[in-house]
Nucleic acid binder design. Structure first.
Length: 511
RNA sequence: GGGCCGUUAGCUCAAUGGUAGAGCAGUAGGCUUUUAACCUAUUGGUUGAAGGUUCGAGUCCUUCACGGCCCA
């Protein structure tokens, strides 16, 4: 028995197709270097198709006189062998597919014979000139061809491709090879994140990195993952949010900071939740939540405008047209709830018994220990949130559910906080920051009491954070934007798994 | 956590409780402008796992695993 059960057992799914390819590989080993790395490309498929794609301007005659040699490397996706000539489609690093025309007599001695033994999935290097076929497809007429990597496993079928969701997520590398739209999604994700960085850099924010491993989890109400440091014999938590560290930086005088990084929350997995996910958080001294709203709106206006394929700030998401242009609607939580629940009036809002009764009436989950603030939010989430399709800033959240936010000066039971709701989902959450160390200590204490009463998501008391506030944190505002959910919106993806290269899945059953 | 659906050849899918099949891929042969190339022949299965019912189970029942969708 192996002493490391985590490591995979040897391959057991070796089938006949793989065995045949393995034999071809063994033959290759006998003929010299089987995995050469001396082929260098001079062109890529997308660029050639872009530049020479116009069939009128670049007809066969013009291409012949162009007479330039190109070297491309890519994976064979399909083959049509017609005796002493063949057509092959390869897909290269650009993601585009280009056809090769191979004629025995154009290639060095023996190359064509060797090629006929190669397989779909093999990676090849081709040297040749451009041509246009009788049916008008821009192709490369090969003068040389080299096998760069032998593929041992057959690719999914050329026509139906790979559609099994589980295999697509588990073997994303195969999904990326055969489903071009998957590649497009992740290219777009990268563009979005780059644009966000660019925006914040432009606004004078400093990108920082704060710890992923915390002694005291904090910054969000969520269950953390626990891990263990062996040498120090110490339990550590994977961070649920970077908030408290970023605000320590405000104390330290880094007054405009942002971080784009992973958070980890120990909760269920669904089409909207992955145990690890990417969050943007940014903090801005001498600004309040109204400044954040303005900044967020300009971020979204600009981001969506610059995105390829978007016009007029409109994006289609799952059949709904979402308009990101202009100013977004604003509504206070209380107004939204009163509007939606006829039986509630403004005077009832701080009446927990009344709210609890309304929850019961609408079959909304409510726990005994919850105060009016928490109940109000349950009513909001159950009845209102999913109806907010167009971007909407929902403002003024109860203090009970906002343990790190600054109190509203007119009604200290509420926080100067907002969430940006789009397509019925929370996309951003921001607020004026609480920088009163004594108030913060009391709020931590309330969280600890909730923990003791059984709320596993409640926060811990972070003494060092209080100490930092006691040195004085400048008045500030801060915000978090869920990158995965944003990318879902902007790639029309129904599931968070479709915007994560390697979404979390349970381990595959072994044997 | 609950409900519904799914898991059959490498891939995509069929198969009234009664002989497990097709297309693509593969293999062998033919074909020097094809493009889901074509023509001929042909290989390939622990039907997710384990039990049960039955003369007989891919199909019915139970449990489990994994996945999808919805709900909390």
């Amino acid at each position: 028995m192996t002493h490391n059960e985590q490591n995979q057992t040897p391959e057991v799914d070796e089938n006949r197709l793989i065995a045949e390819r393995r034999e071809k590989l063994h033959a290759l080993r006998g003929q010299g270097e089987a995995f050469p790395n001396d082929f260098r490309v001079t062109a890529d498929a997308a660029t050639l198709l872009e530049r020479f794609g116009d069939a009128e301007r670049w007809d066969q005659e013009t291409l012949e006189s162009h007479d330039e040699q190109y070297r491309l490397a890519g994976r064979i996706l399909s083959r049509r062998i017609m005796g002493k000539a063949s057509f092959v489609h390869i897909q290269d690093s650009s993601g585009a597919r280009i056809q090769l025309y191979l004629r025995r007599d154009d290639l060095p001695e023996g190359v064509y014979q060797a090629f006929k033994q190669w397989d779909i999935g093999d990676i090849v290097g081709v040297t040749g000139t451009l041509m246009r076929t009788r049916t008008g497809e821009l192709s490369i007429q090969a003068s040389d061809l080299k096998l760069l990597t032998k593929s041992l496993r057959p690719l999914p079928e050329k026509w139906h491709g790979l559609s099994d969701q589980e295999t697509r997520y588990r073997q994303r590398y195969v999904d990326l090879i055969v489903n071009p739209e998957v590649r497009d999604t992740f290219v777009r994700r990268s563009l979005i994140i780059r644009a966000i960085r660019h925006f914040f850099d432009d606004q004078g924010f400093l990108e920082v990195e704060t710890p992923m491993m915390h002694h005291i989890p904090g910054g969000a109400t969520a269950r953390p993952f626990v891990t263990h440091h062996n040498a120090l014999d110490l339990d550590l938590y994977l961070r649920v949010a970077p908030e408290l560290h970023l605000k320590r930086l405000l104390v330290g005088g880094l007054e405009k900071v942002y971080e784009i990084n992973r958070n980890f929350r120990n909760e269920g997995v669904s089409t909207r939740h992955n145990p690890e996910f990417t969050m943007l958080e940014f903090y801005w001294a001498h600004a309040d939540y109204n400044d954040l709203i303005r900044l967020t709106q300009s971020l979204f206006n600009q981001l969506i405008d610059d995105l390829p394929g978007v016009s007029g700030g409109r994006v289609e998401y799952q059949g709904e047209i979402i308009d990101f242009s202009g100013d977004y609607d604003r509504i206070e939580v209380v107004d939204a709830v009163i509007e939606h629940y006829d039986e509630l009036s403004r005077e009832d809002i701080k009446d927990a018994d009344k709210l609890r009764a309304v929850c019961r009436k609408h079959d909304i989950h409510a726990e005994d220990g919850w105060g009016w603030g928490r109940l109000l939010m349950e009513l909001f989430e159950a009845g209102v949130e999913r109806r907010l399709i167009q971007p909407t800033f929902v403002t003024q959240y109860p203090i009970e559910v906002s343990p790190l936010s600054r109190r509203n000066e007119k009604d200290p039971d509420f926080a100067d906080r907002f969430e940006l709701i789009i397509a019925g989902r929370e996309i951003a959450n921001g607020f004026s920051e609480l920088n009163d160390p004594e108030d913060q200590a009391e709020r931590f204490q309330a969280q600890v009491e909730a923990r003791d009463a059984g709320d596993a998501e409640a926060m811990h008391f972070d003494q060092d954070y209080i100490r930092a506030l006691e040195y004085g944190m400048p008045p500030a505002a801060g915000e978090g934007i869920g990158i995965d959910r944003l990318v879902m919106l902007l790639t029309d993806s129904a599931s968070i798994r479709d915007v994560l290269l390697f979404p979390y899945l349970r381990p595959e059953a072994t044997e």
